[in-house]
Amino acid sequence: MTAEAPAATTRDLFEVNLARRHMIGVIFQGVALLGTLVGIIVLAVLLIEVWRDGIHFLELDFLNRFPSRFAEQAGFKSAFWGSLWVIGFTALLAFPIGVGAAVYLEEYAPKNAVTRLLQTNISNLAGVPSIVYGILGLQLFVRGTIGIGPSLEDLGLRDLDRSVLAGSATLALLILPVVIVASQEALKAVPPSIREASYGVGATRWQTVRSHVLPQAFPGIMTGTILALSRAIGETAPLIMIGALSFVAFTPGNPLDDFTVMPIQIFGWAVRPQLDFQDLAATGIIVLLIVLLSMNAIAVYLRHRFGGPASR
């Protein structure tokens, strides 16, 4: 009531200028749209180009032939199965370790300077170039020693040579930071009220984590892990560094066998001068992309399957 007199004069000081504000909004929308289109168009051009080059070699038999000196007889079998072996073991290594680390950091670790340092380091490791992990994997797994401390042999293990397992272990190291951070985000997204409810009926920490926190975080953890594995399946540099072969005429029969993977095979074909081999590389890219998209589809499916209405 007493406040009305000053309010009247204050009201005159507004310069609404709706037209200008709306125009700025439209401009920004245009810039954002342009940014989106650039990404989509470049991807589309790339896909069309690859498709046109690679389609004439694409047949089911492509996955059933080993590489060859003759383009029309060359196939993707060793690379395709090598990738599946490597990715399978990478998942087996990275998933339990990564989720375990995330559960520890989110649910158990005290929030102090040490865990903060650990956290910062994990985030930074996610940005380390993959070739560096290749060097680490070469020393640690292939040669079995990093020069200090006991070697794998001292520990009663054999070095892994350039086996599937060495490749998987290297890739697992590479994606662990991503798996850990993604899992932590998923755990953080579980509402604290659920934890309180569980503790409130006399659950222990593990019972709470096991029965309520992990199930609710599971879709997010799976999505993060599968996306990290998608990155690993496209990695070339660290596997070349640990000595994966580029011409392999067999599929791995056990985790200690030699191997090659799809990106290395694609690279091996692409650097050849003959046009046919470059088309073969395009065919390989198509197969790699199909595998990648399938993995992402699984991630989406898991999110919907386990993240349904029951868990909001």
Partner: peptide, 17 residues
């Protein structure tokens, strides 16, 4: 054990999903 003997109902209903 304390939390089993002393139950709690929270401000916002928080059933388990």
């Amino acid at each position: 054990e304390v939390r089993r003997a002393v139950g709690m109902v929270f401000q916002k209903p928080n059933p388990f999903p």
